[in-house]
Design a protein around this nucleic acid. Sequence first.
DNA 1: CGGAGGGATTGACAAATATCAATGCAACGG
DNA 2: CCGTTGCATTGATATTTGTCAATCCCTCCG
Lengths: 234, 234
Amino acid sequence: MKQREIDAAWQAPRQCELCGIRHLVLFADLDSDDFQLIHKPIDVLSYSAGAVLYRTSDAPEYLFTIRQGLLKLVQYLPNGGQRIVRVLEQGDVAGLELLLGQPYQHDVVVLEPTDVCRIPVAVVDRLSRDTPRLHRQLLKRWQRAVNEADAWLTDLSTGSARSRVARLLLRLAEIGSADRFYLPSREDIGAMVGITTETASRSIAEFKRAGVIRELDAKHAALDEFEMKGFSEK
Amino acid sequence: MKQREIDAAWQAPRQCELCGIRHLVLFADLDSDDFQLIHKPIDVLSYSAGAVLYRTSDAPEYLFTIRQGLLKLVQYLPNGGQRIVRVLEQGDVAGLELLLGQPYQHDVVVLEPTDVCRIPVAVVDRLSRDTPRLHRQLLKRWQRAVNEADAWLTDLSTGSARSRVARLLLRLAEIGSADRFYLPSREDIGAMVGITTETASRSIAEFKRAGVIRELDAKHAALDEFEMKGFSEK
DNA sequence: CGGAGGGATTGACAAATATCAATGCAACGG
DNA sequence: CCGTTGCATTGATATTTGTCAATCCCTCCG
């Protein structure tokens, strides 16, 4: 066990340098010397749908870079209500708040099979202190989070239920591949746009009847972007 | 004119070092040497209610540190709708997105008389490149923005109209002084919590009748926190 | 003083959404 | 293969919220 951890720690710098999607991730701008500052193991982990990356109550130990997949960030109201405040995809980072000493601010749950790099917070802290090359990437990640959050407020929390759902699907379609996007459960759709499960279901059913979306399998569909934009306006 | 600008540039470092609220602002951690890197004028400006700090269409030249006051960040939907996505108070920064090369993401409008430091983006860019002491403060500002945005999604965009308004007022009460908080126009309340002006008005009127809030003047009120928390739950 | 103008409030009604309940559908395990 | 289980869908109503319009209340200005 000890040995394995040490191996991982030793290999991490090399593996990171060779990472196929490094241009997309937090460590994009680091150089060889920077990687030598990594003295704790960074593990690549895979999760399947429904798995929990972490909960707000978990010990704040790791940041996660999303290599592949889709996750939801859930936040709870004092009265028990819950709301999905964002969705993470390739290149996003979960747990940035740890860098400023905060506990995890969300529960993070896997929607589509996901691969992540699990990075000890100490590693990023150290790099953050000693290499300016990480700073810009950190700022970019924060900025992206704010932009997304603002968009969820303006796009997904305003207007009629149906148009909110339409705008959500257009957003998910941009994340997905050309003709296939992740269609969340009706309950999750409701939690994303602030409506009930039933109303979400009615909207989706209506889109299906109108032929604006076509169900491919239980969790995926294709949509007619032009038509859907019509629905998104009122 | 030229001369005045040069004077300002020369004075900025000293004035910033002596700033009475420096512990609250972006430059909190800078040292004397850092301030020598400032080669463009930082001006302190005052705005009265209704003034516009900037619009999305403005040239991206300045960041603003809020010394005092209250402002709203407004974002527009393609179909013309608008939504207030956040409110800024003392210590907050407007225009952080410029540091990453983005244009202004909001229109920023003064709600209560406001003093700001207007900082040329080049100054922050330079400091950001050359002093790590600024980084932590930048990250803190971004983090605060995300936390606020998430809270606006969960607190102010979920539940019945009345409870959203209640939660908004509780939030504003925390910003204000002990027994006096800024009570926005009904139209702004609507734009903050995603309901119509009329529904906002009905909620406020109901709170007044129930004695949960007391109007002090046109734009200020006091509230009974305990009672209001009752309303905020359903 | 009187009148104009800009919010705020209220009422009446329409429309949208939530709620409660039943049914349909498909995957899964025994 | 059949029953169970977990969603999704749909229907029937109850509530909430939006819409349209009128009135009220101030403040400002001539």
